[in-house]
Computed example of a mutant assay.
Amino acid sequence: MSTVTIGVLSRDTLNSRFLNALNGELQDNFRGFETLEDLWQTLTPRRWTILGAITGLGPVSLCEIVRRVGCHVKAVHEDVHVLVNAGLLNRREDGAIEFPFDAVHVDFMLRSPLK
């Protein structure tokens, strides 16, 4: 099973992972955000619904995603665009959209701002 982990990492750690990937170092299935607020702003409830609706389906059309989530085409198109940019969805050359994972794991820690 292929699982993507979504979490919060410091800017330095995110930059380091990016540079390592550019240098050919294989990275694990992790998609990071600099802040918890960035994570929740990107992964809205409707975007979670989209991910859930296409998990395990393989490549699907935008129209199929719209049919499965019951939203307007424009809204789904915008959400898919954000999820592609976040590295969670792939847009294939033939235009199909693919969620290349079987599961999602979310990992973050809430800390006291006083420490």
Rank of each mutant, 00 (worst) to 15 (best):
L83S: 00
A75T: 12
S16M: 12
D107Y: 04
A53G: 02
G52L: 02
D38G: 07
L39N: 01
L36W: 04
C71F: 15
N90R: 10
L51M: 09
F33I: 05
Q27T: 08
N85F: 00
L22H: 15
L110N: 07
R31W: 00
D94W: 06
T55S: 08
F101G: 07
Q41G: 01
G70P: 08
E34K: 10
G95M: 06
I6P: 08
S61Q: 07
D12L: 14
I97E: 08
L9W: 04
N29M: 09
V82S: 09
G58F: 07
K74S: 12
F33T: 04
V69E: 14
E78Q: 12
D38V: 03
M1E: 12
E78V: 08
V104F: 05
R47N: 06
V76R: 12
V104Y: 10
V4L: 04
L88D: 00
I97K: 14
R46G: 06
A96W: 07
V69Y: 07
L114V: 11
T5A: 11
S10Y: 03
V84M: 04
L39C: 03
L39E: 01
N15F: 09
N15M: 10
P59H: 06
D94L: 14
L89M: 03
L14Q: 07
T3M: 15
E93N: 08
Q41C: 03
R92I: 06
G70K: 08
D102S: 10
N85K: 10
V104N: 09
W40V: 07
L26H: 10
R67S: 15
H81T: 09
R67H: 10
G70S: 14
H81M: 13
L57I: 02
C71L: 15
T55M: 11
N20G: 04
V82E: 13
G32M: 00
D79A: 13
G58R: 14
L83W: 00
R91F: 02
S61N: 07
K74H: 06
L83A: 01
H77S: 15
R47D: 02
L62T: 14
L57F: 08
R47C: 02
R67I: 06
I50A: 09
V106A: 06
W40C: 08
R68S: 12
R67A: 15
V106P: 00
F30A: 00
H72W: 03
G70F: 14
S2D: 13
F30S: 01
D107V: 01
T55R: 06
V73N: 09
L110E: 04
G52S: 07
R68F: 01
R67Y: 13
N20K: 14
E64R: 04
P100Y: 10
G32E: 00
T55P: 01
R91D: 05
T5D: 10
S2K: 11
V60T: 14
T44V: 08
L9V: 00
